[in-house]
Design a protein around this nucleic acid. Structure first.
Length: 592
RNA sequence: CGGGACGUGGCGCAGCCUGGUAGCGCACCUGCUUUGGGAGCAGGGGGUCCCCGGUUCGAAUCCGGGCGUCCCGACCA
């Protein structure tokens, strides 16, 4: 924190511009020991956030400026598509959540009030907004509506991690659309999709829109907005030409067939002593893993399931869950009981009547494969789906990098990403149980068709750090930087430079920029430069006696660290022009 | 929920193995010097060594239990 001898908050004629002296800005010299992700380390070091407990963070005044700018962009773009801001409570009666069957979810914080009434803390607000819609929207004339809020969400995450990226309490922009029918939902969905594209572009992110699983929200279709980052927890599959992009949870691919030998008339047993893994089997047989079939045993609510994929693939738990529902891995003793063999020699042949459900990946539809014979140390070659065993066929494999994208978009690459937003077609999943209905023009009662749409402003900010930094600090996109210009004053408060810096600060502010003036007394120039690099505002201006009173001021672009000099005469205009150039010519600026 | 690591002034760490009156760097306070890329000298303040229990003449150190935080996996806007 800076040393300001006199506690003198500056007169602040410019709401968006700050003088630093006396402000609370707790920067840190060393990386925090428990921070791994880049955004976690830099957001702590740059004095933007402080941790309270696992997954609980306080945002500092400087950090709040970034969040406010992200939220400002979101508000502008939501308002632009006609969405209306409102605000709902974060504490709700449990009964409403019981009506949709979402009371008791593991991530839900539950509590009781003093009279014993059961309450929940908001994980999200579908139930609540639908409860209101059910009471207020009655006629087709009331539709469509889009309502949104910036509100706290609380989730008892099993594993908070990576600083602000996965937390237990966070602010979400959540919006909800109410339409008369599916066509209306299509329009609301498209409007949100357009707004989201503008929001993430203006926030300066590299982002992808991908098909996604509907997860706990339920509904009939969804997209996620993903910012590529090594700190990401999700993985997407993306075609080389960008025409295909999907969360790996549902990504499909075309996996080339291996070269198959001639098919034998029937499966042939052969001894495979000591062979237990696909790698060993491939080495032993001299066949490619793609010509081998892997068997994974899980236990669903309905009993044992044998999941078959080709040797080079893995079973994807979520995809399998779409077919068989919730399941767990089988224990070794269970497997021995059902198959009479240990993992390593399991296969689908001869399971008829055993009660084991067999699910085969789509790749197994063609060709013939080596599988376990359900006897230890014995395998079968030439096993053909449909001839030698029966199975449900479904896409249950993980996509591999390099496989062909559906639609011919070229080879797939796998990219780790941070989920920064999502949009869901909810349909009537909430409106139906909560009784949100209206009368159409024929006097027919119909169920309102809903969509829900979320963005995490803090995640947007952290993704920007992940995507914009170097070894000395953050490099903010112009749209969400805490300030547009950071003036470093070198010299005490009574120096001529101080007067000039204050004048430049005022002039730049008059030109519509938001300017930080580092007028903290007693700091060495090096300290101010290092902290300016850490904070990462797009343009830095140095005002010191090396060049003043007569000479130029030094201007430096944070992203490139390119320095230039501008003459005193017209300096503010020149700096503003430089900033506008960095802001991609738009000069557009969210209100703070 | 499975696996691993860590917990010692505000921050980063050493000390623990082999028990004996708690240390280093940074930060902070005072003074002098210094002032364009995290200054120098001198002096100074600040620690229930995460908590509870046990062993011991004596525990930061050994033992048991608990709590907290981070990382990997599972899970998940």
């Amino acid at each position: 924190m800076s040393d300001s001898g006199s506690w003198r908050l500056p007169a602040a004629p410019y709401r968006g511009s700050w003088r630093l002296a006396g402000r609370f800005w707790p920067t840190v010299r060393d990386d925090p020991a428990d921070a791994e992700a880049v955004s976690h380390r830099l957001s702590v070091r740059a004095g933007l956030v402080r941790q309270l407990a696992a997954g609980l963070y306080t945002v500092t005044p400087l950090g709040l400026r970034v969040i406010a700018r992200v939220e400002g962009i979101i508000r502008e773009e939501m308002d632009r598509i006609g969405a209306q801001e409102l605000l709902m409570p974060i504490m709700h009666p449990a009964e409403i959540w019981e009506e949709t069957g979402r009371y008791g979810l593991a991530e839900q914080f539950r509590l009781e009030d003093r009279s014993g009434r059961r309450m929940v803390l908001a994980m999200t607000h579908e139930e609540i907004i639908t409860w209101h819609a059910a009471r207020e929207l009655r006629s087709y004339r009331d539709l469509p509506q889009s309502w949104y809020q910036m509100q706290t969400k609380l989730r008892d995450e099993p594993r908070p991690k990576s600083g602000m990226l996965r937390v237990r309490e966070f602010t979400m922009k959540d919006s909800y659309s109410f339409d008369a029918d599916d066509a209306g939902l299509d329009r609301s969905y498209a409007a949100h999709s357009d707004a989201y594209a503008r929001i993430f572009d203006r926030a300066g992110l590299t982002w992808y829109r991908v098909e996604s699983d509907v997860g706990m929200m339920g509904g009939s279709g969804a997209h996620e907005y993903m910012a590529p980052s090594d700190a990401g927890e999700d993985m997407i599959a993306r075609s080389a030409d960008g025409t295909y992009a999907a969360n790996v949870e549902l990504a499909a691919s075309v996996a080339a067939d291996p070269a198959f030998a001639d098919v034998p008339d029937a499966p042939e047993e052969f001894a495979t002593p000591g062979i237990g893994t696909i790698g060993e089997l491939a080495g032993f047989t001299g066949l490619a893993p793609a010509a081998l079939a892997k068997a994974v045993v899980v236990v669903s609510d309905a009993g044992p399931v044998l999941a078959m994929v080709r040797g080079e693939h893995q079973v994807h738990e979520k995809k399998l869950a779409h077919v068989i529902g919730p399941h767990r891995a089988a224990h070794p003793e269970e497997i021995r009981g059902w198959f009479g063999a240990d993992p390593g020699s399991l296969g689908p042949v001869g399971l008829d009547g055993s009660g084991v459900r067999v699910v085969a990946d789509t790749t197994l539809r063609t060709g013939h494969y080596v599988t376990g014979a359900n006897r230890d140390g014995v395998h079968l070659r030439g096993v053909v789906l449909g001839r030698d065993f029966q199975a449900e066929v479904a896409d249950i494999r993980t996509v591999l990098a390099g496989e062909e994208a559906p639609g011919g978009g070229g080879p797939i690459e796998l990219v780790p990403v941070i989920e920064i937003g999502n949009i869901f077609r909810l349909g009537t999943k909430y409106s139906d149980p909560l009784g949100a209905r209206y009368l159409d023009e024929h006097g027919q009662e119909r169920v309102i068709v809903m969509g829900s749409y979320g963005i995490g402003p803090a995640r947007v900010a952290m993704a920007a750090i992940e995507q914009g930094h170097d070894d000395v600090g953050i490099i903010w996109p112009t749209g969400i930087a805490p300030f547009d210009v950071h003036i470093v004053l070198i010299g005490d408060e009574y120096s001529p430079q101080a007067d000039y810096a204050a004048a430049l600060w005022a002039e730049l502010s008059d030109l519509g920029l938001e300017v930080l003036l580092d007028d903290r007394p007693g700091l060495r120039p090096g300290e101010k430069f290092v902290e300016a690099d850490l904070l990462g505002c797009p343009v830095r201006v140095t005002v010191g006696k090396r060049t003043l009173p007569d000479g130029p001021v030094e201007v430096r672009v944070r992203r490139t660290q390119e320095a230039s000099e501008v003459p005193l005469e017209g300096a503010a205009q020149a700096i503003a022009a430089l900033w506008r150039g960095l802001a991609d010519g738009s000069g557009e600026h969210p209100p703070c």
